[in-house]
Design a protein around this nucleic acid. Sequence first.
DNA 1: GATGAATGAGAATTCATTCAT
DNA 2: AATGAATGAATTCTCATTCAT
Lengths: 207, 207, 207, 207
Amino acid sequence: MENTKTREPQQKRSIEKKNKIIEVGFRLMCENGYQKTTTADIAKAAGVSTGIIYSYFKDKHAIFIAGLEQFGSKMIIPMYDQFTFPLDVRKSLNIVIDALIDGHQVFMGAHKEIDSLIMTDEETARIMYEFEMRTTKDLEKFLKKAGFAPENLLEKTHVIYNMIESLCHELTYHKHEELNCEQMRTIVVDTILTILGEPSIPYFDQA
Amino acid sequence: MENTKTREPQQKRSIEKKNKIIEVGFRLMCENGYQKTTTADIAKAAGVSTGIIYSYFKDKHAIFIAGLEQFGSKMIIPMYDQFTFPLDVRKSLNIVIDALIDGHQVFMGAHKEIDSLIMTDEETARIMYEFEMRTTKDLEKFLKKAGFAPENLLEKTHVIYNMIESLCHELTYHKHEELNCEQMRTIVVDTILTILGEPSIPYFDQA
Amino acid sequence: MENTKTREPQQKRSIEKKNKIIEVGFRLMCENGYQKTTTADIAKAAGVSTGIIYSYFKDKHAIFIAGLEQFGSKMIIPMYDQFTFPLDVRKSLNIVIDALIDGHQVFMGAHKEIDSLIMTDEETARIMYEFEMRTTKDLEKFLKKAGFAPENLLEKTHVIYNMIESLCHELTYHKHEELNCEQMRTIVVDTILTILGEPSIPYFDQA
Amino acid sequence: MENTKTREPQQKRSIEKKNKIIEVGFRLMCENGYQKTTTADIAKAAGVSTGIIYSYFKDKHAIFIAGLEQFGSKMIIPMYDQFTFPLDVRKSLNIVIDALIDGHQVFMGAHKEIDSLIMTDEETARIMYEFEMRTTKDLEKFLKKAGFAPENLLEKTHVIYNMIESLCHELTYHKHEELNCEQMRTIVVDTILTILGEPSIPYFDQA
DNA sequence: GATGAATGAGAATTCATTCAT
DNA sequence: AATGAATGAATTCTCATTCAT
């Protein structure tokens, strides 16, 4: 049941072109919405013809899914990547938050669009849930290694994950002018530290 | 710059008809997505003709906005409504959470759709931010009266608001099978209590 | 599993419009081929917009099928309709042939297009086979009543049906200039008479 | 008015390639219809690139015409080829019919497609009429030599040609389940013998 | 000669909006 | 006011043909 219409590009030029379509297409979809982004828009922005899109992708939806799989991991919090030893959790969390805000504003938009599609599109939902779960588990594993061993660590990790995500939305869009962003950040970080409690194995014992 | 095309219904029947369009239209948009909901769908579900819709609304978008203004306040957390004296914050929070999950699953869908539109639609964004801010402030005022007076209460209130919302998403959609919902709920409630701290004026002094 | 997108026109005007689409669309498809006839062509020729076509028909193919069902019976040989008492088979056959040639040149074109679609389209095939069989049976019944009772009358009737059809193609398109059309007609009629043999009940006994 | 784009292949390899394209392309067009057969399909099935097709053929249509000219003669009844001395017409006719059914089912499909194209494509029409006429004349010449000399032999021959073709369609596609195929075949053969009458010169006098 | 990636005109279909009744 | 038929611009996707390599 191979798809004989689309093909996997072999040439370097072609691979670049396919990636360009994914990147540009996904960005447009995230910025302007899936529906408002037409295949003609994508083609134009990617500097290709509409036809070539359908050489590489079954349909418009496949571009979105490809973007999701390629960039999805950047949209969820790659938290432990930012953690360095000797572990300073407060500092690490702030690095994570900065990274999410500074570097990935597009992907905050993505989240909105994705959240919308999650309601009606099975595939999008599956991919995102998978990403979220993987991230949560990765972070949990890291926290364990770092000596944090509270009860229900997995669930706590996910609550933390959600807090950071919500915070980043706030900080990215400055939604509520009356709210002091820096204070909210401090509150979130403090709360996370409270949730985690003290590490049972002091960090300086690790190596 | 008066709109001379649409009119404000004067008759009781007309007002009912307009409200029906808003209610049915907004529900459909929330359940199936804004784009996937056609004006024909709305007309059919509301038991009116497609033409009449344009007597009451400038365009399809206006139905969404009207729905947002009418039902939006139900979608954000009407937290303090659930709080009763003598104040048991833990119990109250659980009532709020139950209310959101049990009663407003539609509006969880709404949130997704709205979040998506917030990215591209100024008006939706403005309305939602306003709602959120008002809720946050109402809750803050209530908490103050209840004797909670930590620093930066407004910001803390908003962090709490976000935590509850995230939790409700999780509980509503059982997104991650590997996560224990009840534990997450307990973690969230416990954390909120920690954030709020002890009330400076014991609740039993109030009345 | 009702089709809720297309509707059955109730108003006289609408019914006329639908019929116009069928008539014009089917004619164009027969004359120029199914593929070469675009929905835009049909809309233009029928004096309607492209959109309205899809109010009445699921898709382009449905127009063809509707045309087939509406005009199909005119394309197969309505042979016995032309037979009158007292029965003069030779004369009657010539009337049938004249009727087919004079009146239905469009439907000769239809036959070609249909024959092509029969190869790849189940529905077209089914409808045409049904028509052909019905015609064959009707004619057989008539011939029986007229006193012709040779062995295997049904099969003979169908051979006769095919001969007449082939002849009409020849006569309609004057395909082969070197062939004398009138002689071919005489040959076919004579041959049919030979196939049928003598009626066991002389026609003059009937009434 | 030379075509400077396409070229006549000189090399043996090239000639083989061109023939392969014609053979494969024409077969696909006959089996699936002209429109449904894409140049990509043909290229893939012929084991060549899409580009090379346009070195040998002006356009897609030219492949069909080439196929028609190359294989067309096999699609019309090569009747006299099957006739052997001493002449047994009944037996010979059955051999012809068997040959058409057993060996050339593809070309029955071709006939449908060709008939469709005849309506709109001058070139297809011309070629087919030529083929048919040549076959008819060849057969006529043969029958004359065999001693059949009825009046209007050419026209009779063509009627016979049409009868066989119709019969073969029936037998190939079993269109009408209620019809007994073997009886139809007998009827057709008997009728043809009747049309031809007795040979004036007994066949055994020939040699 | 050969490839197959790329093009882009064109086709079917949808649906927000209008308008004759 | 109300209807729902009608419109037609816009969108997705296809495929014959071209062209850079």
